[in-house]
Nucleic acid binder design. Structure first.
Lengths: 123, 123, 123, 123
DNA sequence: GTGGTCTAGACCACT
DNA sequence: GTGGTCTAGACCACC
């Protein structure tokens, strides 16, 4: 059973939220290679949303080679999860860069930012 | 004259882009307290967009107490821009925290992240 | 079906009238938590006004946390209507205080004011 | 010198604010019968507003017989300020009635309201 | 000239 | 069908 929390209010469409949550779970190793994931209908009913929405998410994930659907058998996590992880890392590191840049423009020093990283580590 | 570059394609609405650009300019001190900003019509025509869109942006900025609008007179930067800056900083620092947390979960070490901050500084 | 009577003439804008009517209905318990309210288009057509005007009212109500709107699903009364009621009460009690103060300055005695309250009760 | 605080943001026009402030001062006896009040130009320059706006306010006040303008001599408070006071009282008592009604609908008891009146008296 | 409100109607994404 | 955004343009009061 996968834990998926959806935000129905924000601007990010449901199907996209599903995509990124599953991607993250794969990157984190919570979902492992060759593992089977819920069918479209099952997940849809669990989340209380329309199957078309889940279908769209699975289509995108398949296109991104994160999952593989085998007709009549089910849907499985791809075997090459390393690549997914690596790609995800790069994406998120880029976001970090932007955020650092933005904060520097607001007058926040490197020291403050580094301190925040260290502090966070102790939590 | 304010420099505003808009992305007419992305998922972020135009009015929200205007909001965050002006907010940033205030935080950076480029727009100063009590300074008058362009009238709704003027900015709209400069940006080639509809006055209603600018109005919506100004409404939000007023609600956030970044600007003050005086009917039939014009629109002005609030007197307390320090608070705006501080609030903006806090918001952005929180985002940094989340991003750091996320990357740590993906297996990125503090060293890597700190290195990225230093590297960015040399650009 | 919500009963909404609008004054199209006065100085109070239509969208604000809608806001305060719905707020009052929530405070009075006529509209209950989680209850769905009419769609923007529906209410607009019922009232014979433009959907944009209703949208603006709903935006303000959402910002005040009186309602919650879920895109493509509909608009619902917030779950915490108690707070709405309490907040509304406080607002209106403050207005009463100001009015009492003003009348006292004009030379009206407490007795006269209290008499008015009792009289009103018999209507 | 009359103390006039204007709200440039609200929905009430400046000239109307001037009217009701002067009316209130007359009702309170701060401005006395036959007393001279500032010329249009003088008041306008004191308030930093357009003389036309003050003119409009004075016109309304004259029409309401609160003030009298004698060409080339100046503007004076009317001799019959009692009527102004009485009229003002009635207006404000009506507002009190509405407010009481509204609060009663919100579930506030007469006792609570009366208590508020007494409490206010001790301030 | 300024902002404030409202209309009419279009297009979009999502479900 | 729903809400979200945007356009085009009108009318108003105020200054």
């Amino acid at each position: 059973m996968i834990l998926i929390n959806l935000d129905y209010q924000g601007r990010i469409p449901i199907y996209e939220q599903i995509v990124s949550i599953i991607e993250r779970y794969v990157a984190l190793g919570i979902l492992k290679p060759k593992e089977q994931i819920p069918s479209i209908r099952e997940l849809a009913s669990n989340l209380g949303i329309n199957p078309n929405t889940v279908k769209k998410a699975y289509d995108i994930l398949e296109q991104k080679k994160v999952i593989i659907t085998i007709s009549t058998k089910g849907t499985y996590i791809s075997e090459k999860t390393d690549e997914v992880l690596e790609q995800k890392k790069q994406e998120e590191l880029e976001k970090l860069e932007h955020q650092v840049e933005l904060l520097r423009n607001l007058g926040v020093t490197d020291q403050e930012m580094i301190a925040l990283i260290h502090k966070k580590n102790k939590d």
